[in-house]
Design a protein around this nucleic acid. Structure first.
Length: 239
DNA sequence: AAGACATACAACCGCGTGTCG
DNA sequence: GCGACACGCGGTTGTATGTCT
C-alpha cells in the first residue's frame, strides 16, 4: 500500500493553529459537516491536511469539549479505568463526557502516573488492555433480579468503574463460577472454544486469551476486583 | 533580570483496521 | 479475495509557559 505524502511535501502547513484557521474550520463544519476529512481542507480553503483538521476539531474545536482542569472525580475515574483498560485512551475518553483521548493521555502522563507510583497497582494493566466494550451480540445470560442492589456496593471499588462493574458482575452467578473452576488453572489460554468454554465466559476471559496469559493470571484479575468490592463469591478460588 | 530546566499540552507520525469498488 | 483509501488510535515530539537558581 502506498502511503499518501506527508503535509509538508504537499506544501501544506504544520504546527499550531491560528484563530483564523480555527474559525474557518468551525464555520465550514457548521455549514457542511466534516464529511470526508481528506477533502475538507481544500473545500474549506485551509492549507492543512485532512488529518490535521480532524485532530484539531476532535481535540479542541468540537462544541461538546469540556475545557479546564480535571476534577478530582475525573482523575480518580481515569486511574480506575486505566487499571482496567490499560492505555486504551479512546475507551477511557468514551466514559468521560467532554474529554478527549489526547487530553486524558496528557493528564495521565503528566499528573496521574506519578501519583499512583506510590500505590501498588492491583493488576498489571498491560495484560488486560484488550477488555471488550460490550458483551457478544447473542450474550445468553440475563442479569439476576437482585443483581443491581447487591452489586451497587461495588461503588467502594471506586466511582469510575461503578456502573461498568454492575454490568459485569451481575452476569457472574454460581453457574458462571462453576464453569470457571472447571478449567485447569495452569492452562495457557489460546482458544477456549477447543475446551468447550461458554461464550459468556470467553467474553470475560478474552483479555487473557489475547495476551496469551494463563487462567491463573486472568482469574487473579477478577479476584482483585472482587476483593476490593467486598463481594468475593464463595466459589472463587483464593489466589 | 536572565538563563537553565521542568512541565503541560497541542499537534504530529506511523500503524492497524474497516470499508468499498 | 485484493488493493486503495479513509479514518481512528496510541506513542512521540515540539513548543509555550512556568519555576528555579
Amino acid at each position: 500500500m502506498v502511503r499518501a505524502p506527508c503535509c509538508e511535501k504537499m506544501g501544506l502547513k504544520k504546527g499550531p493553529w491560528t484563530p483564523e484557521e480555527d474559525q474557518i474550520l468551525i464555520n465550514y463544519i457548521d455549514l457542511h459537516g466534516h464529511g470526508n476529512w481528506r477533502a475538507l481542507p481544500k473545500l474549506a480553503g485551509l492549507l492543512r491536511c485532512g488529518k490535521s483538521c480532524r485532530l484539531r476539531w476532535t481535540n479542541y474545536l468540537r462544541p461538546d469539549i469540556k475545557r479546564g482542569n480535571f476534577t478530582g472525580e475525573e482523575e480518580e475515574t481515569i486511574i480506575n479505568l486505566h487499571a482496567m483498560l490499560g492505555n486504551r485512551w479512546s475507551a477511557i475518553a468514551a466514559r468521560l463526557p467532554g474529554r478527549t483521548d489526547n487530553e486524558i493521555k496528557n493528564v495521565w502522563h503528566t499528573h496521574l502516573k506519578k501519583r499512583i507510583k506510590h500505590t501498588q497497582p492491583i493488576v498489571n494493566p498491560s495484560k488486560f488492555n484488550k477488555i471488550q466494550e460490550e458483551p457478544p451480540v447473542n450474550f445468553p445470560i440475563q442479569a439476576r433480579s437482585d443483581a443491581t442492589e447487591s452489586s451497587s456496593d461495588v461503588s467502594s471499588l471506586t466511582t469510575g468503574i461503578k456502573v461498568e462493574s454492575q454490568d459485569m458482575f451481575c452476569h457472574m452467578d454460581d453457574d458462571f463460577w462453576s464453569e470457571v473452576l472447571s478449567i485447569d488453572n495452569s492452562d495457557v489460554v489460546s482458544d477456549f472454544s477447543t475446551v468447550g468454554v461458554s461464550q459468556e465466559l470467553q467474553y470475560y476471559l478474552s483479555p487473557a486469551m489475547e495476551a496469551g496469559s494463563n487462567m491463573h493470571d486472568n482469574m487473579e484479575f477478577w479476584y482483585n476486583l472482587f476483593s476490593r468490592s467486598g463481594e468475593l463469591p464463595d466459589l472463587l478460588p483464593n489466589f
